[in-house]
Amino acid sequence: MKQRIILGAVAILFILVACLVVRGFLKSRSGYEVLVKSMDSWQQADAPLGYPLNFASLSENPSEDAQIPNFDSRLIQLSAFERARVPVTTRMHSAMGSEFGALTYNAQPYWADNPKRGGHHTGDDFNGIGGMNTDLGDPVYAVANGLSVYRGEPSKGWGNTLMLAHRDVEGAIFMSMYAHLDQIYTPYGSMVSLGETIGTVGTANLNYPAHLHLEMHRSSGVHIGAGYTKVLGDRVDPSHAITQQSTGAPHQLYNSPLAIMMQENLEYTQQNLSIQNQSTQDN
């Protein structure tokens, strides 16, 4: 009888210890639960696009009035389908002046220190050689074959902004970002070829004299941060990257194979439309 009481007490003690361990584990994991934003739209379901929810503030101040941040289109990861569509580029050239970069100067180079603005410049500011607004409305060219993965106005200070995704010969994805545009000609999700006109130089809602802010990111996602930072992150020097991939003198350059293919597809489509229209008229 005494032995049964001892065994029973040991069993109860073991169960209590196990309960305490499980409770402690679950409590330690409570701050890491993935919060569901909403199921109202594709932009909000399970935060799939990488928007950083502020878990800490929500867990420290739980209430019915706690607001979950809205979807932020400036920070997204490419889908598997988008990754598969990103074209390979073997050559790059300037985004302004002419297809080959003439008649421009770099008014504020990448990583130039600007304490008044909060840190280092995140890209290159390209101007026409006349300065000020003399380049307003000038064409902006794609620096390489790419896929349009962002088109919009992330803030009044950025103005119209376009981001293209590219793939190098080793398969790594990188981004080029064109900000302060006056007009954007490239639809979201479309393929563009090296040297194609993708927009025009603007002033970002009259915040600056007309110029192109060009950034480059070694990343597989869209990230539009501030124009000045103290943290390098995934940014790289645009001018250096372009120079490394620029080969041959301007008179030796040839059209991008992607541009040739796109032009041939367009001509083929136009010919088919002409044949169909002629056939309709004959009937």
Rank of each mutant, 00 (worst) to 15 (best):
K2R: 11
Q3T: 15
I6N: 11
A9H: 14
A11V: 11
L13C: 10
L13D: 10
C19L: 12
G24H: 06
F25C: 08
G31M: 09
W42A: 04
W42T: 03
W42E: 05
Q44K: 07
Q44W: 06
A47K: 08
S59C: 00
Q77L: 07
L78N: 02
R83L: 00
V88W: 03
R91H: 14
H93G: 03
S94Q: 09
Y105H: 04
Y105P: 01
Y110H: 06
W111N: 05
N114Q: 02
K116C: 08
H120F: 14
T122K: 07
G123H: 05
D124I: 03
I129Q: 15
G131P: 06
G131L: 01
N145P: 00
R151G: 03
E153F: 06
S155K: 08
G157H: 08
W158I: 13
T161D: 04
A172T: 02
M175C: 08
M177N: 09
Y178K: 11
Y178A: 02
A179Q: 11
L181F: 00
Y188W: 11
G189A: 09
V192I: 15
T197Y: 02
T197K: 03
V201T: 05
G202M: 00
N205D: 06
H217G: 01
S220C: 11
A226K: 04
K230P: 00
V231W: 14
T243S: 07
S246N: 11
L253G: 12
Y254Q: 09
Y254D: 05
N255M: 13
P257R: 07
P257F: 11
A259M: 13
M262P: 07
N265M: 14
N265C: 08
T269R: 04
S274N: 10
I275E: 02
S279P: 04
T280P: 08
